[in-house]
Simulated assay, not measured.
Amino acid sequence: MGIFDRFKSHGQHKDKGTDKREQMSDTVERQANERTGNKYEDQIDAAQQQVEGRLGMDRDRPDQQ
């Protein structure tokens, strides 16, 4: 089971799953920034947005909030 499958499986519970997936995504982003000393912060943020978009987690969409 890959990391994307794990995110998708957590998304099956719409209300709780969305919050948990967002928390997991934010945690991964924070850890990556800490390990790189925020040197690649923009690239990490862009990658996070791409992953969330592909998994249907776009935070900008009104139905996600």
Rank of each mutant, 00 (worst) to 15 (best):
M1T: 12
G2Q: 08
G2Y: 09
I3H: 11
I3K: 08
D5L: 11
D5Y: 13
D5W: 07
D5G: 11
D5K: 10
R6P: 00
R6I: 00
R6K: 09
R6E: 01
F7K: 00
F7H: 01
S9M: 04
S9P: 02
S9V: 00
H10E: 04
H10W: 13
H10D: 09
G11F: 00
G11V: 00
G11L: 13
Q12W: 04
Q12T: 10
H13L: 14
H13G: 00
H13I: 13
K14E: 08
D15H: 07
T18R: 13
T18M: 06
T18K: 10
T18W: 05
T18S: 12
D19N: 02
K20D: 04
K20V: 02
K20M: 06
K20A: 03
K20Q: 03
R21T: 00
R21K: 07
E22P: 00
E22K: 04
E22L: 00
Q23E: 12
Q23H: 10
Q23N: 10
M24K: 00
S25A: 15
S25L: 15
S25H: 01
D26Q: 11
D26W: 05
D26K: 11
T27V: 04
V28G: 09
V28Q: 05
V28C: 14
E29W: 04
R30E: 07
R30V: 06
R30D: 09
Q31A: 15
Q31K: 11
A32P: 01
N33P: 03
N33L: 05
E34H: 13
E34N: 15
R35S: 14
R35E: 15
N38D: 13
N38F: 15
N38I: 03
K39N: 13
K39T: 14
K39I: 12
K39E: 10
Y40N: 07
Y40K: 04
E41G: 01
E41W: 08
E41I: 05
D42G: 10
D42Q: 08
Q43I: 01
I44F: 07
I44Q: 05
I44R: 09
I44K: 02
D45R: 14
D45M: 04
D45E: 12
D45K: 12
D45A: 06
A46Y: 13
A46I: 02
A47G: 01
Q48H: 03
Q49A: 02
Q50E: 14
V51T: 11
V51S: 06
E52P: 00
E52R: 10
G53W: 11
G53Q: 14
G53H: 15
R54Q: 10
L55V: 01
G56T: 02
G56K: 00
M57V: 02
M57K: 03
M57Y: 10
D58T: 01
R59K: 09
D60Y: 03
D60R: 08
R61G: 07
R61I: 09
R61L: 07
P62R: 03
P62G: 06
P62W: 10
P62M: 12
P62Y: 09
P62H: 02
D63R: 15
D63F: 11
D63C: 07
Q64S: 11
Q64D: 14
Q65V: 06
